[in-house]
């Protein structure tokens, strides 16, 4: 099994609200050769059965990944979804303001730092020069189910720098 077979996976786990529960759930991942990338704890969000959903991103070979899911289930961890798509929803926002003065690349890396999104491309338009108001279109990929969290991060980062965010409208089922 070569290194190039390593892929990203996201699993959604449902944990009981007890101390040590998260650690117990993560052990089978490391033990079975998975490389933990990020953990996304949906705080405040509780499943109908009173469990706490946690999204875990990891890298592993497909074979090892199967072993990981098996080990998790053996350890009594409820694995809700196990897929190979790490990022699955595209999200486009516009940023408006003194983008250059406020260090656009820092702005973008702060957005990525939240761990839910990866930035695909950025288009900047500064028709009146970089000292004036400019606009940027930022396209990112975010975890399914983490769109709201990602937007909240974008809002918070923009807020701190006095930038305006034009968010996409989530039109239910509309093209």
């Amino acid at each position: 099994m070569s290194e190039s077979d390593v892929r990203s996976y996201t699993v959604r786990l449902e944990l009981q609200d007890e101390p040590g529960e998260l650690l117990r759930a993560l052990e089978p991942i490391a033990d079975n050769g998975g490389n933990l990338l990020s953990i996304f704890h949906e705080r405040g969000n509780v499943t109908p059965r009173g469990h706490i959903p946690v999204e875990v991103d990891m890298e592993a070979t497909p074979e090892r990944f199967e072993g990981i899911v098996e080990a998790l289930r053996d350890a009594g961890v409820n694995v809700i979804r196990a897929g190979s798509e790490q990022y699955s929803e595209e999200l486009v926002v516009l940023l408006v303001g003194h983008l250059v003065d406020t260090d656009l690349s820092d702005t973008l890396s702060r957005i990525e730092d939240c761990g839910n999104a990866s930035i695909d491309d950025v288009a900047l338009s500064a028709p009146d020069g970089t000292d004036e108001l400019s606009s940027a279109r930022v396209r990112m990929d975010t975890h399914a189910g983490a769109v709201e969290e990602t937007l909240a991060t974008v809002r918070a980062v923009a807020d701190r720098k006095g930038l305006h965010v034009v968010e996409p409208l989530a039109e239910g089922g509309d093209a």
Partner: peptide, 9 residues
């Protein structure tokens, strides 16, 4: 919203 933002969109 400046014109440039609408162009990017």
């Amino acid at each position: 919203i400046p014109g440039s933002a609408l162009e990017l969109a």
